[in-house]
Design a protein around this nucleic acid. Structure first.
Lengths: 305, 305
DNA sequence: GTCACGTTTGAAAGATATTTTCAGAGGTGA
DNA sequence: TCACCTCTGAAAATATCTTTCAAACGTGAC
């Protein structure tokens, strides 16, 4: 049989979802005049009909409830109620098939709803790209180093600084000694203290942020295990990194600076790193996490309910 | 005849097409026990529930018809009939897209590659849920207020503080006067300065973080336009918010605290807010953005290769 | 502990929607 | 023209959904 339903590439129809129009055409000749009017309305605007009661559809088609029910029966449903459910499904199906035009850049005059859709789509894309491009061997090595580190220093400036703080905050929560450095001078000063068994993590999208490379270089020279989280694995920062974790570089637009999407990518990498460490230190991490929840609980006012 | 084909991307907030699962999670905490049972059944097996009458679903969940109707109302539908139609749509929707393979929670003994895949998937899901559940009208109003604000104060503590800093950082970049407050005492002290024409933004996942609610309340009392970004739109924080932007509540596990996925959701909302504001202030925002790029350029060492 | 009060809940009444029934309208061929 | 059949919709019957209301439950105050 040759189904040439052109609206969807998925003509799959176990009960009778998308093949409704075809069914109407097939059965139309065996219908009476009134029933044809109903069937026509149903096939022409499934979504609209799904919103109508049996009485409403009868009025719309200038027929009676009885006729509507008869038509539903002829189309293979137990009654109008079930036809209506099928129509609702069909409507949703059609709407989803309508390819969302979210691949375009965000423009100045985009309505706010489009901004939300495009942004969410882009971020999802960034996540997928990052996950696909992440070297799990490098990640595993980084996790191993961090899980057993005496102390962990994180360097990041600008947008990356927040990512670094996020990482340090979480590592602290599971009982590790982690610190995020924002001030480049203090970062270098502290890096001097590092030695073998310590871990230094530099976060920079461009891979060439001097303020971040410098402390990492010092840590590297001191014998610490160094990790770079960067979108440019071939950049200068990698020179001083034992392990390089690559973030993806999403497309940017005038309204959406690179810092925005790189942050999403960086956060995913950082979260993976964190969870990996939490797994390895589960014995101590789990109680530490519970403890921090409880400590916070009293800071929340009781809910209204 | 009047065909009212609704083909806008995000028709309106009351009926939720695919965002149902997210909506259930968001609203679940504010539900009573019986209603939670119903909501759980609905979210767990939309297709199955779509086949049930109100009586059937009441029996299945061991509750009464009244409770089922109440739940449907809470989820934003006029009654059970409409919820059922939406469920039918959702079921059809789900059937078209194949079931994802990475729905399991992250376990302690997952290999690192699985962690990456699951985490990325969860985050993507969180983004989709957030985008679907975001009220664009509220967002638009928030954007309008922020774009014309004399000054913008952002409150957030803990994980949300980083989100707040991110927002403030970006708004500063396009020439707005924005400040992220981390210290609750200073936040209140500063909130006293606010007045009509100013904007205060509180970020709290739980919706009941006293340290964040307090400054927002003060700002609200002073006549500033207040915005709450929260996962609990029915929480105490909303009392003092002119506009509530809802973040989605993703499932959490022992290794993946709620703070982690809420952060993703919050960042998306914040980014949408930012871009909305950037659109509205494009004349000044665009040059400001370019200027900040150039100012940063010399901080990057020329790349190797 | 006990009481008062607000919340939650389901049984049953009430309102709608759907299905069935049935009698008349409309058509067709002798 | 008439007998006969099909088609049709009004209205009754049934199913489904919604609302009401009082009892059960939980919670905080005393």
């Amino acid at each position: 049989m040759t189904n040439d339903v052109k609206e969807s590439f998925n003509p799959d129809s176990p009960p009778a979802p998308a093949a409704l129009a075809a069914k109407v055409r097939t059965l139309a000749p065996s219908m009476t005049r009134s029933m044809q009017r109903v069937a026509e309305a149903v096939a022409g605007d499934p979504a609209g009909c799904a919103a109508l009661t049996v009485t409403g559809l009868a009025e719309l088609t200038g027929t009676s409830e009885a006729t509507v029910v008869r038509t539903a029966r002829l189309l293979g449903y137990p009654g109008y109620r079930d036809l209506r459910l099928a129509l609702a499904g069909l409507a949703a199906h059609q709407q989803s098939g309508r390819a969302p035009a979210v691949t375009a850049d965000i423009a100045v005059d985009d309505p706010i709803a489009d901004v939300v859709a495009k942004l969410a789509y882009d971020e999802q894309q960034t996540l997928a790209d990052t996950a696909a491009g992440l070297d799990t061997v490098q990640l595993g090595a980084a996790v191993a180093a961090a899980a057993t580190a005496r102390r962990i220093d994180v360097y990041g400036v600008g947008a990356s600084s927040l990512v670094g703080q996020d990482l340090a905050q979480k590592l602290l929560r599971i009982g590790l000694i982690a610190h995020a450095h924002v001030d480049p001078h203090l970062a270098v000063t502290n890096a001097v203290q590092l030695r073998s068994g310590d871990v230094a993590i530099a976060i920079t999208h461009s891979g060439s942020t001097g303020d971040v490379i410098e402390p990492l270089r010092v840590a590297f020279d001191r014998g610490a295990t160094t990790i770079a989280i960067t979108g440019r694995p071939d950049g200068p920062v990698s020179q001083y990194a034992d392990h390089v974790l690559t973030t993806s570089t999403a497309r940017e637009s005038e309204l959406r600076p690179a810092a925005m999407s790189s942050r999403t990518s960086q956060l995913l990498v950082v979260d993976c790193l964190f969870i990996g460490v939490a797994q390895r230190t589960y014995e101590t991490a789990a109680p530490a996490l519970s403890a921090s929840y409880e400590a916070l609980a009293h800071r929340h006012t009781p809910r209204s309910r």
